[in-house]
Structures are given as C-alpha cells and as structure tokens.
Amino acid sequence: MAPPSHRRPGFSRRAQYVLFSGYVVAVLGAITASLLVVAAQFDPRGFRAVQGVASDVASPFMSVGRVIARTFGATDDAIAHYLAAISTNDALKAELARARSRLIEARIIEAQNRELRALLQLQDQRPDVVAHGRLIGSTLSDSRRIATLSAGAQAGVRSGYPVRAANGLIGRVLNTGTYSSRVLLLSDASSVVPVRILRDGSPGFVTGNGDGTLDVRGLNAGARLFRRGDILVTSGTGGLYPPGIPVAIIIRSRGDEGTAAPIANPGAVDYVTVLGLFHPDKPADPVPPRSAIATGAAPVTPPQAAATP
C-alpha cells in the first residue's frame, strides 16, 4: 500500500496552496519543455539567439580556464620535450634533409604553375578572411561536437562560415553570439563536407562519426577509391567550403568507403581563421556586398555549373 506523501503540508491553508501551485507550475513547465524538445526535432537550428547569448556568457570562463590549462600544460610539455630532446633532434635533422630536396622540387613546380596559370589567365578565387580567434572550449557533456570560438558577430562572423586552422579544416560556424560563436566540428555526426582525393581528384563526402574519426564515401560506387594515407581536400562543390583546404587522411579503407582522421586537431590548434562563404560562381571582380553573404543560411548556389567549361 502506498504510504502518505511526505510533502503533506498539514492543516495550514497557505501551505496547501503553495504546494498545489508548485505542482501546477511544474506540470505546465514540463509540458512547455516537451514542446521545446519537439520544436528542436523539427528545427535543430532554432533557439540560435539563446544559444549565442549562452556562449557569450560562457566564453570569459572558458578563456580564463584556458589560460590556466595552458600554463600547466606548457610545463608538462617542456619536461617531456627535454627528456626526448636528443631523439627528436636526430629525427628532425633527417626530416630536414628530406624536406630540402622536396622544397627545391616544389619551387620548380611552383614556378611552372605560375607560368601555366598566367597562360590560362586564371583568376585566383581566394576566400576572404573574416576573423581570427581561438577555440576555447567545446560541448564536453553533449554528444554533438560543437566548439566555442572566441570571435563572434562583432568580428564579422556569421553562421555558415567555414573555419580552418593553419594545417586544415576545422568545421563551420553554427551560430554566433556577440563576442563568441559556436563551431560545428568536422567530427560531428551532422557535418558533411564535399571532398576530393588529392592523389587522383575523385570526389567524395566526409561525415563525422562523433568519436574523432570521419566516415568517407566515394561518389563512384563500387570502385575501390581510397588507399591508406590518401589525403582529402575540400572540393568546393556546392559552395560554402573553399576548395583546396586539407581535411583528413585515410586510415582505413573498405571498398568505396573509408575511415579518416582529421588533419587539424581542434583540441591542439592555437588559432583558427574564419573564412567568408565560398561561391563557385563568384564573379572575378571585387568583394560582393557583405549583406549578400551575411544572411546566415546555407548557400543556395547551384552546384558548380559555371565552373566546368
């Protein structure tokens, strides 16, 4: 038999009213909360403004914490580096010797490339650098992979803009606060990036697995496309991500699918760069008006119809 509730308020009429209204508020609140959850299923990008404000509030805490973490992390690294100094030195010398000969080859190719481009009169479509910032934190207890960036709408960051580190692609801006923004990392399950294999240029898609690795699918079904060690770069197809940014390196291959590891590790990079949206059919003349690319939505440009001759 169920015992009496311990919340029984006794004979006080006031206490009874307070208890009853508490239950009314709780039930109404629970109904509202379930409506919010359902709304998020249909419109995952809703509540952008609220989340922007939340990331603005969080960013000072994260920045201070990051300074502290770096101070301690740096001393750790210094000790480890000191212990491994001699072997690292030998390895670096060997690598430098290899790199020198490759550098000379690369210079020759670069010069050749410049001549050929001049011959073809190609216009360089360099994406505009919008802002620089640091990745100061991430969703540590949620299964989505979203990092907090220390630059927001005030620095010109808009949602949808691609974010890269010096060595590779990081992801794209999901939503912005005034001083900070949230970046959807490559490893998130909802992130999709069109890529091509650097070796032979065959196209594919990279999606996140949510555990730090990426899933790669080739567009040529059935063909054995990927080899271990292949480097994937953005293809620029469909706009958004500018072409030629290193994305991932293949670590496992099975048929026309593969598993890849991101080249830029968002946990280790120092500074990241926010780029403007890439438009495949962008005119070669000056920068388009900011308002045209600042709408925040994913670009609706047709897939590279103009780029193929």
Binding site: A58, F61, A69, G137, L140, R145
Partner: peptide, 11 residues
C-alpha cells in the same frame, strides 16, 4: 564544469 576549456573528440 561543462565550461572546462577543452576541445575533445567525445563527450
């Protein structure tokens, strides 16, 4: 505590 300043691969 979820504001700890780390970027991790998994929650």
């Amino acid at each position: 505590f979820a504001w700890a300043p780390f970027v991790t691969d998994m929650p």
